[in-house]
C-alpha cells in the first residue's frame, strides 16, 4: 500500500529558496575559511604522516592466524570463518593431526588456509565467529602485491603476520 508522506508546510520565506541557498553558501564558506586559516586539520598526508602510533586496539587490518603460548596452532579448521566470510575470501582445507604429533588430541587442524586479500573487506566477521580465538585482525593495513597470487595469504604468511597470542582460551591445555 502506498504511504502518503505528509510534506511540511513551507512559509513564504522558505518558499523563496534564496535565503536557504545563501545559508548553504555561508556554511561551506565558513568551512573554507577555517581550513584556509589553518584552524582545522582533518586529513593526513599519508605516506609521510602515518596513523600507526594512534591506532586503536580494535583496528581492523589484515586478518591473520595466531599460535598459542605453547606454539600450537590455535586454528582447528572448523571452517566457521569460511562460512561467515561475506566476500568468500577464506578457503580452508581441513586435515587430521597425525597420532604421533604432540597435539594429536586436538585431532584437527588446517592443511591449507588461504585468505584472498583482494577479496577481504576487513569486516572482522572471522574474528568474531572464531570459537578457538585463532584468527585476529592485526594492524597491518598496507597489503600490496604485484600479482593476484601474491595477494593470497597462505598459512605460513598468516602465521607470520599473526604471531603468538597468549592467554584467552585454555581449552586444549593439560589443566582441563
Amino acid at each position: 500500500m502506498a504511504i502518503v508522506v505528509k510534506r511540511p508546510k513551507l512559509s513564504i520565506f522558505e518558499k523563496m529558496y534564496l535565503p536557504a541557498i545563501g545559508k548553504g553558501l555561508l556554511i561551506t564558506l565558513s568551512h573554507a575559511i577555517k581550513i584556509l586559516r589553518g584552524k582545522k586539520k582533518v586529513t593526513m598526508q599519508y605516506p609521510e604522516e602515518k596513523w600507526d602510533a594512534n591506532m586503536p586496539e580494535h583496528y581492523r587490518g589484515a586478518p591473520a592466524l595466531v599460535k598459542d603460548e605453547q606454539g600450537r596452532e590455535r586454528c582447528v579448521s572448523c571452517q566457521l570463518c569460511e562460512f561467515i566470510c561475506p566476500p568468500r575470501a577464506i578457503k580452508i582445507v581441513p586435515g587430521e593431526i597425525p597420532s604421533d604429533d604432540p597435539w594429536a588430541k586436538v585431532e584437527k587442524r588446517p592443511k591449507e588456509f588461504d585468505i584472498d586479500m583482494i577479496r577481504c573487506i576487513y569486516c572482522g566477521m572471522c574474528e568474531e565467529v572464531c570459537p578457538e580465538q585463532a584468527i585476529y585482525l592485526r594492524k597491518d593495513y598496507a597489503i600490496t602485491g604485484l600479482s593476484r597470487e601474491e595477494m593470497v595469504h597462505d598459512k605460513e604468511r598468516l602465521y607470520e603476520i599473526g604471531g603468538v597470542r597468549e592467554g584467552l582460551v585454555n581449552k586444549w591445555n593439560e589443566l582441563k
Binding site: 561551506t28 573554507a32 577555517k34 586529513t43
Partner: peptide, 10 residues
Amino acid sequence: RFSAILQDRV
C-alpha cells in the same frame, strides 16, 4: 582544490 577546501579536505 576549492571543493576540497570547502569540504575540509586537501
